[in-house]
Design a protein around this nucleic acid. Sequence first.
DNA 1: CCTACCGATCGGTAGG
DNA 2: CCTACCGATCGGTAGG
Lengths: 197, 197
Amino acid sequence: MVETTRRREIEAAASSLFRERGYSGTSVRDMARALDIQGASLYAHVASKQDVLGSIVDRMASRYETAADLALADVAAGPAERLAAIVRAHVAVTTDDIEQASVFVHEWRALSGERRAAIGRRRDAYEHRVRDLIRDGVDQGAFAVVDPALTAAWLLTALNGLVTWYRPDGRIAPETLAETYAELALRSVARQEDPRR
Amino acid sequence: MVETTRRREIEAAASSLFRERGYSGTSVRDMARALDIQGASLYAHVASKQDVLGSIVDRMASRYETAADLALADVAAGPAERLAAIVRAHVAVTTDDIEQASVFVHEWRALSGERRAAIGRRRDAYEHRVRDLIRDGVDQGAFAVVDPALTAAWLLTALNGLVTWYRPDGRIAPETLAETYAELALRSVARQEDPRR
DNA sequence: CCTACCGATCGGTAGG
DNA sequence: CCTACCGATCGGTAGG
């Protein structure tokens, strides 16, 4: 399937429905209705319902990966700056398209076979980058954490939790959110003020 | 519907399926098959598929609420102790039945009408308790946060993220997890080591 | 808890 | 992008 404007419109409409009702809870006819066409007409543009989900999830995975690449590209940056940068990047990708981000976070498991497995591996790799970054910070004495893997899980689930509550028309600007979340991430790895606390 | 042993078995089987495939992705016949009975036979025990989901979600909502009540019952405790207590309680409820906890977190939106609205209100109330606790801590000078509402959202989504990765047979004991998550929660509200950081 | 069955809807195809 | 249609499956009911 070639990438056309219409294809993008279909995926945008589908993302909105998948977010609201889930992939399984959305029928092909629901998707078509949102575009004012017949259910069968959708197949002039997409190979299958899975195909639509796969495109959305694949693209979002790439966006998160590319954003992380750019955030970590500054080799001179220290662990704290790097962690803050990847958090800001993650928040930016999420707020930039909250519906597709939501589908990526919640519906990737609805993919089947090799496609699902491949996304699972990419998600694991992303988590490992965060984990390794935390370990680096600990090794360099910049961070102090109880458990790098647990801290990474805490951090990434908090970040992905954005899709459950963020609204583009809400009171918080994306930039403010990115800064606050970067701050919260740094706190989770910070050396402690006072061991007596 | 009376609460019978069989009913609980049905809900346990359903929770496992709902977690794996989602509520919409699970058919009544899938549920029956897991119990080695016919699809239609399920209706001797439950009124509807929604009824099964509703029972699971309602019970888990009550468990989280009751656990929070107990955690916050000690009126002499300070903000930090209270926050740590509610986090430990939340982790304990989650790890105690990870499948039903997962259904509560991810599938409550599949409920319809008043039932969904009621759960939405209970979830909001729970989040408000955490938010108010953070505000209290700030007012008393025990905490320093950028934004209580954002910090509460960060914290609760990290807690609920447990259902996406926690495995009872994994390397982390529930008690260790509760302690580590309580520590991470405290870090998110802690006064900072050094403003120059 | 079973068999037999219901109308509705599902994802998808044929052929324009 | 349409009409017409496919077999399969959906949640649920009747009547034992």
